[in-house]
Amino acid sequence: MTTKGFVSSENYRKRMRIAMISVIAAVVIAIVKFITAYLTNSLAMYAESGHSAVDGIAVLVAFIAIRHASKPPDLDHQYGHAKIESVAALFEIFLLLGFASLILYNAVIRFMAETVDLRIGWPAIAVMCGSLCIEGWRAFSMKKAAKQTGSEALEASSLHFMTDFLDSIAVIIGLVATTMGYPKADIFAALFVAGIILMLAYNLSKDVVSSLTDRAPAGVTEKVEETVSSVDGVIGIHAIRIRCAGSQMFMEMHVEMDAKLDLVRVHDILDEIERSVHTLYPTMHIATHPEPKRSDA
């Protein structure tokens, strides 16, 4: 049986618009933070500016991934290109792990140093407060767009921005403590940023691995079974297989029907099954195999 289209043009434009705005915002924030880090020699600020730069790269990768994932199926990719979003999210994980390792290395170096020349003042704190507001808006906007479009790439980026928001709070606390005479607070703030990044990479990796290994989405099989079983003419169903590719879901199943039904009636029942399932999952791609069920009489 045929299914609905892969990615609507409206869905695609929404993803691209959010991704483009986020790329611009990430670049501007990263530049401002890096200049501030250079002027203050704050490890926490370097960690924040680097994290923002990683976010900018991540959103750019998501931007490219969304463009490719939205392409229709072809002879070489007959299930579409949605898996590219999972690959993009995997790339973001490696970026996060690499940058977190760099922060940890520099934190150890500074702990071992006798003195560190810090030039932290209230202008740096003001920069971080402004960044905090922007990052809160970005996290909310990206999360909303990810839910509306079902994009794994946007979901990964929204998690990055939420951690940026938490990072900024920790860095502000560290900067304030440093200006009050506690220089080690700058290192602890940087370590907090590294810890958040590692936690993000771990959580993101679970979703990506599930997608790349075709793990069935939780609860979907049960809902589909209940919905299909309620369709008039369906005697039983089995061999249900469901997998995800980016924002798309693909399902195969065998449907048992009365062996006495003619082909037209069988086709009508399969159409009704698709309509019923699409009320729950509008973009699910469905392949049904009808099986005749003979009575014992």
Rank of each mutant, 00 (worst) to 15 (best):
T2E: 15
T2R: 15
T2Y: 11
V7M: 15
S9W: 00
E10C: 00
N11A: 05
R15I: 08
A26V: 00
V27C: 00
V28S: 12
V32C: 04
A37I: 05
Y38W: 07
Y38T: 10
T40I: 03
S42C: 03
A44N: 09
M45Y: 03
M45N: 06
M45A: 08
Y46C: 05
A47G: 14
S49Q: 07
G50T: 00
G50A: 03
V59W: 00
V59T: 14
L60E: 00
V61S: 00
I64W: 00
H68L: 14
H68G: 01
D74L: 04
H77D: 08
H77M: 06
Y79I: 00
K83N: 12
S86V: 02
S86L: 04
V87L: 14
A88D: 08
A89R: 02
A89F: 02
E92S: 02
L96Y: 00
L97Q: 06
L102Y: 10
A107C: 13
V108N: 15
F111M: 14
F111Q: 13
R119Y: 11
I120Y: 03
G121E: 14
G121D: 15
C129Q: 07
I134T: 15
E135F: 02
G136S: 07
M142H: 02
M142D: 04
K147E: 14
S151E: 12
E155D: 13
A156I: 02
S157L: 01
S158I: 02
L159Y: 08
L159V: 09
L166S: 03
L166G: 01
L166A: 08
S168M: 11
I169P: 03
A170D: 10
A170P: 01
I172H: 07
I173M: 09
M180H: 06
Y182K: 10
I187F: 04
F188G: 10
A190F: 06
F192E: 05
V193W: 03
A194R: 04
S205L: 11
V208E: 02
G219F: 05
G219E: 07
V220A: 07
V224Q: 01
T227F: 02
I235K: 15
G236F: 05
G236A: 14
A239E: 14
I242D: 11
V255A: 10
V255H: 09
V255Y: 08
M257W: 05
A259Q: 10
L261E: 05
L263S: 12
L263Q: 11
V264Y: 05
D268Y: 01
D271F: 01
E272C: 07
I273L: 07
R275W: 03
T279G: 01
Y281P: 04
Y281W: 05
Y281V: 00
E291H: 08
D296V: 15
A297M: 09
